Amino acid sequence: IRCIGVSNRDFVEGMSGGTWVDVVLEHGGCVTVMAQDKPTVDIELVTTTVSNMAEVRSYCYEASISDMASDSRCPTQGEAYLDKQSDTQYVCKRTLVDRGWGNGCGLFGKGSLVTCAKFTCSKKMTGKSIQPENLEYRIMLSVHGSQHSGMIVNDTGYETDENRAKVEVTPNSPRAEATLGGFGSLGLDCEPRTGLDFSDLYYLTMNNKHWLVHKEWFHDIPLPWHAGADTGTPHWNNKEALVEFKDAHAKRQTVVVLGSQEGAVHTALAGALEAEMDGAKGKLFSGHLKCRLKMDKLRLKGVSYSLCTAAFTFTKVPAETLHGTVTVEVQYAGTDGPCKIPVQMAVDMQTLTPVGRLITANPVITESTENSKMMLELDPPFGDSYIVIGVGDKKITHHWHRSGSTIGKAFEATVRGAKRMAVLGDTAWDFGSVGGVFNSLGKGIHQIFGAAFKSLFGGMSWFSQILIGTLLVWLGLNTKNGSISLTCLALGGVMIFLSTAVSA
Rank of each mutant, 00 (worst) to 15 (best):
W217F: 09
T88A: 12
A241K: 15
G102C: 06
M125Y: 07
G184T: 05
V243D: 04
G18W: 00
M295T: 10
I152V: 06
K84C: 08
S433P: 11
M140F: 07
L45H: 10
L212V: 13
M206Y: 03
A311I: 06
D393T: 04
G476Q: 07
Y61F: 14
A452T: 12
T120V: 13
L477K: 04
T194M: 00
G263M: 13
G28C: 02
Q77A: 10
N481V: 09
G492Q: 07
I448A: 10
S66H: 08
E244R: 11
T366Y: 01
R9E: 09
G334S: 01
G492N: 10
G109V: 07
H401R: 08
V6L: 04
M140P: 00
V347M: 13
W211D: 09
W225S: 02
R138N: 04
C291S: 08
L475G: 03
D87I: 04
P132F: 09
A176S: 01
T205F: 03
A422E: 00
V24W: 10
P39W: 11
V50G: 03
L113M: 15
G14D: 11
C308W: 06
T76N: 03
D98A: 07
E370K: 12
G279L: 00
E244S: 12
H398F: 05
K215E: 11
E162D: 13
L186H: 04
F119K: 06
Q344S: 14
L25C: 07
G390V: 03
A248I: 15
G459Y: 13
E162F: 04
G29V: 01
K93V: 03
L489K: 01
L273H: 10
P174S: 10
A270K: 13
M125V: 11
L441V: 14
K394C: 02
G492I: 06
G111S: 03
P75W: 11
S385W: 13
P380C: 09
G442H: 06
S503Y: 15
I65V: 15
L307Q: 11
H148Q: 14
K38F: 08
L180V: 11
L204T: 05
G228A: 08
R94Q: 05
L223Y: 09
P75V: 04
R357Y: 09
C308I: 06
A361M: 11
T351L: 14
L378D: 06
S368R: 07
C74M: 11
P39A: 01
F449R: 04
K409L: 03
E329S: 08
A63I: 10
E367A: 09
F183K: 10
S461A: 04
W429E: 05
H144I: 08
N172G: 01
K290W: 10
T315R: 07
M375N: 02
G127K: 05
Q350P: 11
V415R: 01
A410N: 08
L188G: 03
L441F: 14
N154Q: 12
S129Q: 13
R299E: 04
R99E: 08
F183Q: 11
L352N: 15
T369P: 02
R175G: 13
C60T: 04
G482H: 11
Q331E: 14
K84Y: 09
M421Y: 12
F108M: 08
P318C: 04
R193P: 01
T156M: 12
L376H: 03
A176K: 06
Y81A: 11
P342Y: 06
V21F: 06
M375R: 00
V347Q: 13
P174G: 05
V303I: 13
G14H: 05
T353S: 13
V388H: 14
V502L: 10
S16A: 11
K118M: 10
F245M: 11
M375W: 07
I130H: 05
W20M: 08
V33G: 05
G78C: 07
T325C: 10
D161W: 02
V33A: 10
F457L: 13
G444A: 15
A117F: 03
H27I: 15
A311N: 02
T194G: 00
E244Q: 14
M277R: 06
R416G: 09
R2M: 09
P380Y: 12
T49P: 00
T76Q: 06
E262F: 09
Y203D: 13
E329K: 04
R193E: 04
I484S: 02
A452F: 11
K128C: 14
I221K: 07
V494P: 00
G184A: 05
T88W: 10
G18F: 01
G444P: 05
I468H: 10
A280E: 02
K294S: 04
V423S: 12
Q85A: 04
F312W: 11
N481I: 09
W217K: 08
S286Q: 09
I1D: 05
E262P: 04
P354W: 00
S405V: 01
S70P: 06
I466S: 03
V12A: 12
C339W: 10
Q131I: 03
F245S: 10
I466V: 15
V6Y: 03
T170M: 13
Y203K: 08
P39N: 10
G5T: 01
L180C: 10
G187E: 09
N362C: 06
Q344P: 00
S499M: 10
G287F: 03
E159D: 15
D71G: 09
G383D: 07
M68K: 02
D189P: 04
T321D: 08
L273K: 08
A451W: 12
E412V: 14
G334I: 06
T327P: 08
A319D: 06
S146D: 00
L441N: 07
L223I: 11
F119W: 15
I484G: 11
L477E: 01
D37I: 02
A229S: 13
W101C: 00
T315E: 09
G104K: 05
I341K: 05
S199H: 01
L25N: 08
H401N: 01
S146M: 13
D384L: 07
I65T: 09
P318G: 02
T47N: 02
E216W: 10
L82W: 07
L358W: 10
E162T: 06
K394R: 15
K251W: 01
I407N: 06
V243H: 03
F438Q: 06
V434S: 01
I341H: 09
G383Y: 06
L223W: 12
K297I: 07
V12E: 11
K395V: 10
S306N: 15
